[in-house]
Amino acid sequence: MRVGVLALQGAFREHVAVLAALGHETVEVRGAEDVDGLDGIVLPGGESTAQARLLTPELAAALDALVASGAPVLATCAGAILASRRGWLDADLERNAYGRQLHSAEAVADDGTPLVLIRAPRFTRLGSSVEVLARLGDDPVLIRQGALVAATFHPELTDDARVHAGTFG
């Protein structure tokens, strides 16, 4: 599969490495022209305000079309915030819900998924078509809506490739 990784700002390089290890062709996406021919897209972590500022209307429209086509999408942390803001994901998130960096943590989800939470957001509302795949305590941390998978943690910072494999095969 030819998978794009939005490379405006943030931890895109780690996603590229995981996808390459799974045998996918990867493309760093910085402009609308990079979206042509993609089979899927990763929206990486980083700073959501910086990413939003760098997302041009042309690139946003190209991504709108890719997501609307039903292509698989993996949105992590700031990427999940972007997906929610663009209306691709029927869910709301609270930014930095656990606090500043001193509250960043490693943990394990109820299904055994290793979690790295960096100034992480928290889902505050999930639409009716959203399925919860994993929780930490009461908080959903991994969800699916159709072909879109969203995480409040960073699967790309662990050795566990199951989230990427589950999204893109």
């Binding site: 700002q9 931890a11 390089r13 980083g46 700073e47 910086a50 790295v116 939470l117 960096i118 100034r119």
Partner: peptide, 12 residues
Amino acid sequence: TKLGLARMLRGG
């Protein structure tokens, strides 16, 4: 987690 925040700031 320390390295994680540093990585999130890349490209910024």
